[in-house]
Structures are given as C-alpha cells and as structure tokens.
Amino acid sequence: MTQTIDNQPATGLAPQQSQAELLERQLRAEVKHLHHFSNRGLWAFSLYIVVCLMAWRGFPMLPLPDRVVAALGPPPPAHVISIVLLFYTFSAIILSLSRMTAGIEHKSSFCHVGYLTGFFLFYHFAKALDDNFWAVFGAGVTILAVESYRIWSFCRDALSRKTEQLEFIQRTGRVPPEDE
C-alpha cells in the first residue's frame, strides 16, 4: 500500500525509513503547533480581562458617549442590547458544545472577545454600562471558559495521539498504522 503524507502521493521508490523520518518531522511540528494552540483560550481570556478593565473605567480613551451619539445617531435601547446579548450567549455556548462534541478544531476565541467588546461599547454609548457590566462580564467568562476548555481538550486528545505515533516510530522505525 502506498503511504501518503498531506494528501501527496508518496514516491513508490522511497524507502520505508525515509517515510518514517518525514512523518516524524511532521508529527513533531504538529505537536509544537498543538502546544502553541492549546494556550489560545488563555490568551483570549487575558485580552478579555484587559477589555473588561477598560470597560470598568468607562473607556477613558474613547470620546464621550454624547459626542459619539451626536456623530453616529442614538444607539439601540439597553433592553434590546440585553436581548441580543442573551441570544448571543446562548448561541455561542451551544456552538462551542457542538464543536466539542464533533471534535472540530476551530480558532474562535478571539472573535468572541471582539463581539463582547462590541456589547460593552453599545452599553457604554447607551449609558447603560453601569447596570449591565456584570452581565457582559459573566457572559464573556462563560463563553471563553467553555471555548478554552474545548480548545484545551481538543489539543490534549490530539497531542496524546501524536505522542503515541511518535513513540511508535521511535520504537519500530516504521510508519504507524492509520487510526480508524
């Protein structure tokens, strides 16, 4: 049977040894990538905490809400923003749990930080941030915690598989059998 790596047909003439070395290098790169990727949730969480601190202080670097409202028009009422926040939280959790169930690698943590910053800004310009800060904070912590857990568990499973394959190559010098 012809071995394939990255969907590229292997040259039938290449010896088994060189294929194993190639696969080993590829596996080592993947392990490195997975180690790096497993921290993605934590980085997103850290960025979110910075955004929360700025929101807590009322976004001092931004122009006053009245000036922004004068330039862009009135923001949606606070209760409409709250309804959207509720649906967003529900959808994000369901989506994250579905991806966890399906074992899909999806790099979505940082976009959630963007959406949550949007909610903070809308509440800020609607002058309702004081009443709703903790709701957005709680929504963000929940979504990012579930996302971080999803990414971390995905990476842990993948790392365990890759490590087993690496050990097999180092022990036998042969390409490991394909998983089902």
Binding site: L85, L86, T89, F90, L97, A135, G138, T142, V146, Y149
Partner: peptide, 19 residues
Amino acid sequence: PVGIAVTGFVIVCFLLLYS
C-alpha cells in the same frame, strides 16, 4: 463543560433580568 455552561448562562440571565 456542562457545569460551566449552565452556571454561566443562568448567572447571565439573572443579571440581565435584575437589570
């Protein structure tokens, strides 16, 4: 994950409802 998701969502609902 179920615990985090349910707890977080219920707390967010509580905060929004109280607001």
